[in-house]
Design a protein around this nucleic acid. Structure first.
Lengths: 357, 357
DNA sequence: ACCGTTTACTGTACCGGTATAGAAGGGAGT
DNA sequence: ACTCCCTTCTATACCGGTACAGTAAACGGT
């Protein structure tokens, strides 16, 4: 059951049948009707997508690549918001989204074997084989929240500027002993000795946020205590927060890598009986929907996730169009702004002398 | 840059190069090394996925179809949980997930044009063109939360039984005037006159849940007031809840289509100063993560979303395997149990005479 | 020396479409 | 009547792989 079947039935060439489906203006209406009728009668659905993809050189689907398990993609509210925005922006273009992990499980490597027209690399592990395959396939790519590369379009948010604003906010409130709660993908985890050790951060956002914090804290002469835990899961965040809060010289304020992590810190503070914001100020990052819901409402750095998704989708479709046209335009680098959102989790530092309860 | 390029370079046949990549045991190790080295040197990544898909007749991706905009897929916690479970279950098989909407936007119909090996139809619009195309493509399909069809495997939860348990629970607490808060995809919306009108429900879950409620309420002679709103969005849910609560003879208890909808009802009750559960009991459905977090904690009917995702993925991979083998095994129909979870949003009916505050 | 098996590789025939150039026929304009 | 153009349809050459059957050489056993 192929184009040829229909062609034979109607008595026209295969090409004409192809046109009847794919380029309606290339043949007369009556003939097209006859062809479609014959197709309907024979139970022919339309051109085979796989064959069409081969002949045309395009698939109609784009990949979105995650480092972590895809479970993360559907658990984290920031990730889901981002994906949703992409989906919405892509819908009118007719492109579908294919979800890929950069974790390669043995010999099965979707990044190498799934047909697609381009891909978005989101919070991706740099060294992974999957990313390497995508590059070598010469697919149009867009980096999101990655270190920008010259020749590849990227979409980022002003992580460093946002982190600076967060630190500035705490300094303005009088805090001088400040805890940093960071998350990483590789160990070691725990209290961090040397903050300038390159191993302290992996991932673009982690690094930029840390740098932003230090931009303000170091010149101000603040005392910095940092902990680093595995990823942004709640349990891990609680573990990291406990490292910072369950000690005699605990900080009076916390800068957290993300709102998800900050949420863990709020829980631990509550369990230890530390009043937030009375005895401890907490600042998150992202403006996760969670941030507005938790009590106390979380002061955070907002990034516009929907805008990021839209920008990423638009940049990718542009890159695909350029690749198809063979136009080697320079890669575009988008940086979206961040904004300090003050809620109830931050307050002026309590009087010295009473800073330990 | 194709297999042939490498073949010419090394001086072997194209087929041997193909085997070097796809069937390593079909040629000697030294030759394979030479071929891979040559490929590396020439910058050849591996067999073109589109061509391979055509020749092999399989793609390595499965579709997941939604009626609503994909935004919904990433907003609703039940949907994201379901997708996450599918992703996790599918990962080791090497299949990727392609997201499709059943909304057809003009001439672009991903369901017709995207290569895939099978598809999951989840909360799908029955009459949509996309669904029709999938059937006609003779793709292995699995229905999830749809009316089961004889010849197509399906995964469902015991919606009706769960709804019965919810209604029974309220009756046991002494409630006799009970509001139903339903959601639909098509109008009309508002208070529902005839509950047995077929137009009152669209979608399998809606129907089963309504039937389950009525199974208990009607024999018990309870007074039923029903409202029906557009989808499960918060604003719509609030609108529907207001219809039921902002009236003199308001019900003493509410049965809601989902926890998301129940959440809207809780908000409206709070705004109207109606104490939950003192003056109003509310029961949701799904055991959305939200249900445990809201105050008061929501009594609900739990369905195991993760199990549903796993079952759906497993059923689909089985169906694909069967289709490939040409084994026409009978379609499997899975029904997962539901369970009443009692939290703080339900209580015995207040004394008559004081049931209006 | 003979025969049955493996192992290692090759040749051919597809998979099911689309691109592109060109041919046949039918007005319109001069 | 001639040219030019436009519409409509066709012929051929790909797109880049895999399946399957077959051949030639090496190997082991008697």
């Amino acid at each position: 059951m192929t184009l040829q079947t229909i062609a034979d039935r109607v008595g026209v060439s295969r090409m004409t049948v192809s046109n009847a489906f794919s380029k309606p203006d290339q043949l007369s209406a009556p003939l097209r009707e006859r062809i479609l009728a014959a197709a309907q009668e024979l139970g022919y659905v339309g051109p085979d997508p796989a064959a069409r993809a081969l002949a045309k050189g395009s698939t109609g689907a784009v990949g979105v690549v995650f480092t972590h398990s895809l479970r993360f993609a559907f658990t984290d509210l920031v990730a889901t918001g981002f994906l949703g925005a992409i989906a919405e922006e892509l819908a009118p273009t007719g492109l579908s989204i294919t979800l890929l992990t950069s974790a390669d499980e043995g010999d099965i490597v979707p990044a190498r074997d799934v047909p697609m027209d381009g891909a978005l690399l989101y919070s991706c592990d740099w060294s992974s084989r999957a990313v390497d395959f995508l590059h070598r396939r010469r697919l149009p790519l867009v980096y999101v929240d990655q270190d920008p590369a010259d020749d590849i379009p990227s979409v980022n948010v002003d992580d460093r500027g946002g982190a600076r604003a967060a630190a500035r906010h705490l300094l303005d409130l009088g805090h001088r002993r400040i805890g940093l709660l960071m998350s990483g993908t590789y160990g070691p985890y725990g209290l961090v000795g040397d903050l300038h050790d390159a191993g302290v951060v992996d991932g673009h956002s982690s690094r930029q946020r840390l740098l932003g914090w230090l931009d303000e804290l170091v010149p101000a002469g603040a005392e910095v205590i940092a902990a680093r835990q595995d990823g942004t899961g709640l349990e891990q965040a609680r573990w990291g927060a406990r490292l910072l809060l369950d000690r005699p010289d605990r900080p009076t304020a916390l800068l957290c890598f993300s709102d998800a992590v900050a949420y863990g810190a709020l829980q631990v503070a509550a369990e230890l009986g530390i009043d937030v914001p009375g005895r401890l100020s907490v600042v998150g990052f992202d403006d996760n929907p969670l941030a507005a819901q938790v009590r106390p409402g979380l002061t955070t750095i907002r990034q516009d996730i929907a805008a990021k998704g839209k920008a990423a989708a638009a940049t990718l479709t542009a890159a695909i169009a350029r690749a198809k046209a063979g136009t080697p335009a320079p890669a575009e680098h988008v940086v979206l702004p961040t904004e300090l959102v003050i809620r109830e989790s931050t307050a002026p530092r309590a009087e010295p002398g009473e800073h330990l309860r």
